[in-house]
Design a binder for these strands. Structure first.
Length: 580
RNA sequence: GCGCCCGUAGCUCAGUCGGAUAGAGCAUCAGCCUUCUAAGCUGAGGGUCGUUGGUUCGAUUCCAACCGGGCGCACCA
């Protein structure tokens, strides 16, 4: 990689300067490379001279000069080396090195940008994990998009990843679900019943009740309430979980594993786990309840695991669940949570530490609320009242790709405004199309070329030295950074970086396409005299002459661009269409 | 009150490890389709990076205080 070669050369220069006594270098300096904003600052710039200034007690400019003087055979790497004002090293890399980027993309294809950073470390990514008490809503959609992108990013960086959905199929909410469904069921059987005040009011509950009736007839009417509730709950659970699974599938997401909370309770795992903690004096009894000493591990206070009435809290099963995850031998646990659960992080980290692991073994990615708007007006959502926009509705209205990209466009830790009217209106102008269009446009380019018997060479088959326009070099430079972006996106667990990169790349390709000619004009088109007239009146229509070899080189470049766009979209779980 | 997140253009947001003249999209205005897909392109206007201090060659970025917004602080999940 170009960046690696440059930093290596600079590091060697620093060392050799040190050996000759020109620099002290008390600590090995970090070679800080960045992409300059202005073309006259070269391809790569480095700020190491300025950061050394203090410890070397010399002006940065002098240090920069020393570094330059000690670069061995600068001609091999650089075509120009300059020092700018305080002490920036502005380096222009030889063109041949940029061409190597295209060769690398060709050689690596779909795995260009991928790395072995993770060294096969095993990661469990748990996400969505919505209670099976209703259909998924928009907020879950965002978590789903983020979680899936994280899975793909981690896989692409050499991690062994398992995705898991934790089903909260125990506890109060499920009980309430059973009660709600039974109430609707009894209604449909002509019984008048008071609907539970805190029950689930959504229309889907009636649909589920209808399924219960289809299955059980009116048999539940005569059963004892407890049993009738239980049966309603069982049917509802299966129905709703299937619904969730189908919604996710439509969204392009399939989990490796589904983990049931109830299974931890029925198998006695929770009892066992709490027993272990008790034996280690990490649990204590107080006020008739049982508490976990999470404060020992930095939580602000201890937490109840078993209530006075004897029921377990959610935390109890979560302790058992996370212990189970750790026992399965994962090197890293990634939990994707709604941001309103952030107060829960310290106690889960306490759990991890209670089992002897550093708290960093658990990384929680918080997904902030989706603010649903309709024509600028906030849509109030509440699962209880049943007024909420489902993921299904959003997918139907905006499309899967657009919805995903929208969710991934922003840092997941910030609030997201999602205006349904706007999303519908903009379905033609959504940023995702801007990126996908690059892929489709290049595909089209190649189709046209083939129809005209113009061969589309791979980089290795093209005269790449013909790519000398600054726009072409800039594009290649952008492609060269893709692996860096992918890595950063994975390491920071921030998929939005990739989304932004792709938009930036698209923002270079479309202007390039409009400015530069790739194929020669169609033979039947009336070129010649018309061109000169047009070029005067419409500068956005490219009229530059392209020799066949330049066409080949540019097609090879476009091929590489297409590959990178495809790889980038892949990692976000968004499709790369051949045609739009 | 305590904790977490956030405050950057009219709106929605990027901004890497502190770097050079702070960037996109939308919206507004003015233009570009007889030639590779106009889901595109060109140009214009628009900024006290919440405020005040501190750290240093240099701060949107780091630190502190304050102001404003969101969320959390359950024997709910």
């Amino acid at each position: 990689m170009v960046q690696d070669k440059v930093s290596q050369a600079l590091l060697e220069a620093l060392r050799s300067a040190q050996q000759r006594g020109m620099l002290k270098l008390e600590q090995t300096p970090v070679i800080n490379l960045e992409a300059p904003k202005r073309p006259e600052w070269g391809d790569v710039s480095c700020t190491v001279a300025m950061s050394l200034s203090a410890s070397e007690r010399r002006p940065p400019f002098e240090i920069a000069q020393i570094i330059i003087d000690h670069i061995e055979q600068p001609d091999l790497l650089f075509s120009r080396v300059e020092i700018a004002r305080p002490g920036f090293l502005n380096l222009t890399v030889k063109r041949q090195l940029w061409m190597d980027v295209l060769h690398a993309i060709e050689a690596q294809g779909a795995s260009y940008g991928h790395s072995h950073l993770g060294q096969g470390r095993r990661v469990l990514v748990e996400y969505v994990s919505a209670n099976p008490t209703g259909p998924l809503h928009v907020g879950h959609g965002r978590g789903a998009a983020v979680g899936q992108a994280l899975v793909r990013l981690l896989k692409a960086t050499g991690h062994e990843v398992v995705s898991e959905y934790y089903i909260n199929d125990a506890g109060r909410q499920m009980k309430l679900l059973g009660v709600s469904v039974l109430a609707r069921y009894l209604e449909s059987c002509g019984k008048s019943v008071a609907f539970p005040e805190d029950g689930y009011h959504g229309d889907y509950i009636r649909a589920v009740a209808a399924r219960v009736k289809a299955k059980e007839g009116e048999g539940l009417v005569s059963l004892p309430t407890v049993e009738a509730e239980q049966r309603s709950k069982d049917v509802a659970y299966r129905e709703l979980l299937t619904l969730i699974r189908q919604d996710l599938e439509t969204f392009g997401i399939v989990f490796d594993s589904w983990f049931s909370e109830a299974s931890l309770l029925t198998s006695g795992t929770v009892d066992q786990v709490l027993g272990e903690l008790k034996a280690r004096d990490l649990l204590f009894d107080q006020d008739g309840a049982q508490w976990f000493r999470s404060s020992v591990f930095g939580d602000e206070k201890d937490r109840v695991v078993r209530k006075q009435e004897g029921d377990y809290t959610y935390l109890a099963s979560d302790i058992a669940y996370h212990r189970d995850k750790l026992r399965r031998g994962f090197d890293l646990l990634v939990d994707v949570w709604g941001a309103d659960h952030h107060g829960y992080i310290p106690r889960m980290q306490a759990v991890v530490q209670a089992y002897g692991y550093p708290k960093e073994r658990l990384r929680v990615v918080l997904v902030q609320m989706v603010n649903l708007l309709r024509g600028g007006q906030k849509v109030e959502m509440s699962k209880r009242s049943g007024e909420f926009i489902t993921l299904r509705e959003v997918m139907d209205e905006v499309g899967v790709d657009a919805a995903k990209f929208f969710f991934l466009m922003r840092d997941s830790s910030t609030h997201l405004d999602f205006d349904l009217e706007l999303a519908k209106q903009q379905s033609q102008e959504n940023p995702v199309y801007y990126v996908q269009y690059v892929h489709a446009r290049i595909a089209s380019l190649r189709r046209v070329a083939e129809s005209r018997d113009i061969t589309c060479p791979f980089p290795s088959q093209a005269d790449l030295h013909l790519l000398e326009d600054p726009d072409e070099i800039a594009l290649i430079r952008k492609l060269s950074v893709f692996p860096v972006v992918l890595q950063a996106s994975a390491v920071e667990l921030e998929p939005h970086r990739m989304a932004y990169y792709l938009r930036e790349l698209a923002g270079m390709v479309h202007p390039f396409y409009n400015k530069h000619r790739i194929l020669p004009p169609a033979p039947d088109s009336d070129a010649g005299t018309a061109v000169s007239i047009e070029s005067a009146s419409s500068p956005s229509r490219p009229s530059e002459a392209v020799a066949p070899s330049l066409t080949g080189a540019r097609l090879a470049l476009m091929w590489a661009v297409q590959q990178v766009v495809r790889n980038g979209l892949q990692v976000l779980g968004v499709s790369a269409p051949e045609q739009m």
